[in-house]
Design a protein around this nucleic acid. Structure first.
Length: 312
DNA sequence: AACTCCTTCAACCGCGGCAGA
DNA sequence: TTCTGCCGCGGTTGAAGGAGT
């Protein structure tokens, strides 16, 4: 749908970029650097607005972009942490993710939010199951401490927060809502105010096992009885409760987690393996040697490059 | 195979901030 | 001080492709 429009007397092209246009734009940036975008238009090099050229460069042509590469677990964790801290400041968040653009982060986040919202609305009740009605969920009796990323600039963390994500605020504390309240009012909760931050749900695990993390889709019939020790609350943010993390755990942590989580009815952390979809997770948990190898390859890129590499 | 629905992502739009005239 | 133009950001849209039926 490469439409055209009149812009200041010139016919401006819109829509998908052609390879020739990319080449011209690359040539311009190579010669003049990524600036003065409007002069590309005024010089008649491309029938595109300066904005469009800049966007194309930033999102697709810039070197070292991880285009077409899914977000790794580590990147996902970083986005979650930073979104909690900065709110929807995608450009700022993207600076912590080498090779990712604000558009990438934004799209990733909205996709994730949609998935979460969908699951929270449509999760079917679990079929016949030996733990039916005894759903392990987190009970938010205490506020969960949310540690900051070590790399967080102090100057940033002392600043005011974005409007919609103030729960990390200056107190450094996420105030989780009382689960009982959610259970009482399954149809009246408000995404903005009533739920624990959506990003703290383990999306992948929830997709595989709707019964595990969704107390409100089907109110449990037994008193909920999982508490988090302070140590595991820290782990919760640092990886244990994050996507993929249950499958990435070395065995020692897994054993400790059994104790920390106080799973109901004699259930052990390792019992979750079956619910997590199979042997691969079991191996990952019980065999520390597979621990590192299970990380997505591109996660390591995070440690290999720095934001400065992307700067001109 | 055909159709529908869903997900992903590239690209556009509108707005606000900033700098220079 | 005001105006103007440019840049960057966040929100939104729509096409393309995949998944499901």
């Amino acid at each position: 749908m490469a439409g055209r429009r009149r812009d200041e007397g010139l016919v401006m092209r819109k829509g998908p970029w052609m390879a020739e246009e990319d080449e011209i734009l690359m040539g311009y940036v190579k010669k003049y650097g990524p600036r003065d975008w409007s002069s590309i238009q005024s010089k008649g090099l491309l029938p595109r607005t300066g904005k469009s050229c800049r966007l194309r460069w930033v999102n697709k042509l810039k070197p070292n972009l991880k285009t077409g590469c899914k977000f790794s677990a580590e990147e996902e964790r970083i986005v979650i942490d930073l979104q909690a801290q900065f709110g929807n400041k995608w450009a700022k968040i993207a600076t912590y993710l080498p090779g990712r653009t604000d558009n990438d982060v934004k799209n990733f986040w909205s996709t994730r939010q949609k998935r979460l919202a969908r699951m929270l609305q449509t999760t079917p009740p679990p079929k016949s199951h030996k733990h039916e009605g005894k759903v392990p969920v987190l009970r938010e009796e205490t506020a969960v401490k949310a540690p900051r990323l070590n790399s967080m600039p102090q100057e940033e963390s002392s600043k005011g927060q974005s409007s919609e994500s103030s729960y990390m605020g200056n107190s450094d504390i996420i105030e989780m809502v009382e689960l009982q309240d959610l259970v009482k009012k399954p149809n009246s909760f408000n995404f903005e105010t009533s739920l624990p931050p959506l990003e703290y749900f383990d999306v992948e695990m929830m997709e595989k096992n709707p019964c595990i993390n969704l107390p409100f889709a089907q109110p449990p019939q037994m008193p909920l009885d999982i508490t988090l020790l302070q140590e595991s609350q820290g782990l919760l943010i640092n990886g244990v409760d994050n996507t993929y993390s249950l499958g990435l755990f070395p065995c020692q942590e897994a054993l400790e987690l059994d104790d920390a989580l106080q799973l109901p009815l004699g259930m052990q952390f390792s019992d979750l393996d079956g619910q997590l979809g199979g042997k691969q997770e079991v191996d990952s948990v019980t065999n520390p040697k597979t621990y590192i190898g299970d990380f997505p390859a591109d996660m390591l890129d995070y440690f290999e490059s720095t934001p400065s590499m992307l700067e001109w």
